[in-house]
């Protein structure tokens, strides 16, 4: 993508934003999900309802929040409720259309690890932040989307720890587990988009971004990546999408001082 006038993170964020329909109720994770969800709100989906686990419902931040509980989220929300209420009435109550999550690792069934790197939980190689709201978002939203940069480090054959459920062991195992909702319906990466096979539930490459090859996606996956028979090509960012995203990041950097969002 050497000749492209946008970055791989920008196309990932823009492609994720495009999928969010106007009026959708989206439970948003901090970081990349939040950037994509707010880009959608500022472009084609002004009536998207953004919920953050800090209890802000209908959040309309003018700049991207740095933490999940920034005052910016509360200030421009339709309402602010307690943390027990957001998880009980609004999430477990079945009112969330899309749970939008980031991850440290995903496996071929879209299960997520955000807990530890290394196979000994008691003595991890790297201690990650942990579950946060994700286990219940992943098992109660009507569907979940995952946004993550794709590499052999992040797309692993076996998770070091299963924090939040995807399609579990594939097939109908998720449905039998008691999890609600359809599970991960899209994994949006800096290389393309993956979706679960209708029967096996294994993540399959269904689209690649401009300038990316199938070989690159395969080489950046820790398992033998399945590729759809008809592979879509992501449309490049429009001038308007890029400008809106860059303005948002510029406003954010100004408001938060030197801290970057990435």
């Amino acid at each position: 993508m050497a000749d492209a006038n946008y970055t791989s993170t920008e196309i990932m964020t823009i492609e994720a934003a495009r999928r969010l329909k106007n009026g959708t109720v989206c439970f948003v994770g901090i970081g990349m999900p939040s950037a994509a969800a707010n880009l959608a709100r500022l472009t084609h989906a002004p009536e998207v309802v953004l919920i953050y686990e800090s209890g802000t419902i209908g959040a309309k931040p003018r700049v991207l929040p740095l933490s999940i509980g920034d005052g910016e989220l509360a200030e421009y929300a339709d309402t602010v409720v307690s943390v027990p209420e957001i998880f009980r009435y609004w999430l477990q109550g079945g009112r969330v259309d899309v749970g939008f999550l980031g991850a440290a690792q995903v496996d071929r069934f879209g299960n997520i690890n955000t807990t530890v790197v290394g196979n000994d939980y008691a003595k991890p190689k790297v201690r990650l932040p942990g579950a946060g709201g994700a286990p219940e978002i992943a098992s109660n939203a009507k569907e979940t989307w995952i946004i993550i940069k794709q590499s052999k480090r992040t797309f692993v054959p076996k998770l070091d720890f299963l924090t939040s459920v995807g399609h579990l062991d594939g097939g109908d195992s998720r449905a039998r587990s008691g999890a609600r909702g359809a599970g991960p319906t899209a994994v949006i990466t800096d290389l393309g988009v993956l979706a679960p096979d209708p029967v096996s539930r294994e993540l399959t490459l269904v689209a690649i971004h401009p300038g990316i090859t199938v070989e690159q996606a395969v080489a950046s996956t820790g398992w033998d990546l399945k590729v759809a028979a008809t592979l879509a090509r992501t449309a490049p960012p429009t001038a308007s999408e890029l400008e809106t995203l860059r303005d948002l990041h510029a406003r954010t950097a100004k408001a938060h001082g030197t801290l970057a969002m990435e």
């Binding site: 998880f87 009980r88 477990q92 299960n111 807990t115 939980y121 579950a131 286990p135 219940e136 098992s139 109660n140 720890f161 299963l162 924090t163 939040s164 459920v165 579990l168 998720r174 587990s177 008691g178 999890a179 609600r180």
Partner: peptide, 9 residues
């Protein structure tokens, strides 16, 4: 709670 489905926690 309806939680921890499938999780290692």
């Amino acid at each position: 709670l309806r939680g921890y489905v499938g999780s290692d926690l």
